[in-house]
Nucleic acid binder design. Sequence first.
DNA 1: ACCTGAACACCGTTCAAGT
DNA 2: ACCTGAACACCGTTCAAGT
Lengths: 215, 215
Amino acid sequence: MSIEQASKMTKRSYHHGDLRRVLAEAALSLAVEEGSWDFSLRDVARKAGVSHAAPYRHYESKRELMAEIAAQGFEALRDALEAATSTSQESPGRQLARTGEAYVRFGLEQPALYRLMFGPSLVSNRPARLQDAASGAFGVLREVMRSCWTGDPGDEAVIQQQALLAWAQVHGITMLALDGWLEKGGGDAEALMERVARTWLPGFCESLSQRTALG
Amino acid sequence: MSIEQASKMTKRSYHHGDLRRVLAEAALSLAVEEGSWDFSLRDVARKAGVSHAAPYRHYESKRELMAEIAAQGFEALRDALEAATSTSQESPGRQLARTGEAYVRFGLEQPALYRLMFGPSLVSNRPARLQDAASGAFGVLREVMRSCWTGDPGDEAVIQQQALLAWAQVHGITMLALDGWLEKGGGDAEALMERVARTWLPGFCESLSQRTALG
DNA sequence: ACCTGAACACCGTTCAAGT
DNA sequence: ACCTGAACACCGTTCAAGT
């Protein structure tokens, strides 16, 4: 290895070689460790020790950097959900409940990151990596749903929709909790999750045909 | 009535007399009619035809103005939910389903306003009017839930929690739909609501004791 | 090839000065 | 009593100039 190459990898003056990753790490640490979700791109540059214009050599815009952080967030969420299901030896119903619990827990433990993942600035034209990472996390939920589904196992559309419903439920609980709507209402998010597990998720595990129509 | 008084009420030069209301209307129209939820306070002032510093005579901060708009949004939501329930002659279960549908519909029809109501800038230290308006809207949901509850009618805590769960469900559906997560997933928000009405809400109408524990 | 510093058009907020 | 215009400290983004 030449002296120049070694210098490139260790020295961090002017050209540091992997500023893109450093910026992403700085932004992620602002969200995860300092819990701030409305930080500026200039904050990120400051944290990384570069000028406020430097990020534009590696990201097209602030939005693109945020999308990368959000994608990493969804990947971490997928890992958390998978960890909750791989402690198997349990009934599918319990696995679904555990997955839902893990989802809400992730949001409550990483409020800034979770808010960033679902932030309105990323709504339109989501980059492929973000879309894929989100699909990956949702996929865990869908597969757990499939495994505990007692109806026609070939009915993909219904399973997909039930999984979306489950996602909406845990997302709603997480968001209401993060936004402070559950504090005075008498129920914290953990208690709500417990009730979900007791009264609502079992309903997912029954086939549609077993359920009565609205009276 | 003196000439001065009449002049005060009609002329809008320099002192117009009800700039506070005019500003709120300008902001609401930016959200409702132009569909923008990230407008600036200076945008509001421009729309109202005053200088960018004028709002500070009537609102302590941008946040206080936003909170007022959000409160009006929750009041409109409460009206929409009440309108959905007052077409009675129906079973409580159907009323609950209709209320949920009306909730999601409100969010889909007023995306900017709905986002503003649940925007992260209003999270901490919510003004009383905003808190009350939100409680009012939630109260409609809770009362419908109570009326279709077949379990112990005196168990306030359980009813409250079930209502919170229902809120989380429709909030989650609305948010996922607004954020574009349901487009490629195969289910739009209306289809999801239909499934909620068919498979999930009926579960709310059964007492807890009728439900089996997780297997 | 990569980074900086100045620059531009914004923003929320403050305040002396105007009516 | 209410509004304005200038000012301050920010922001995202661009770009000529530096290494």
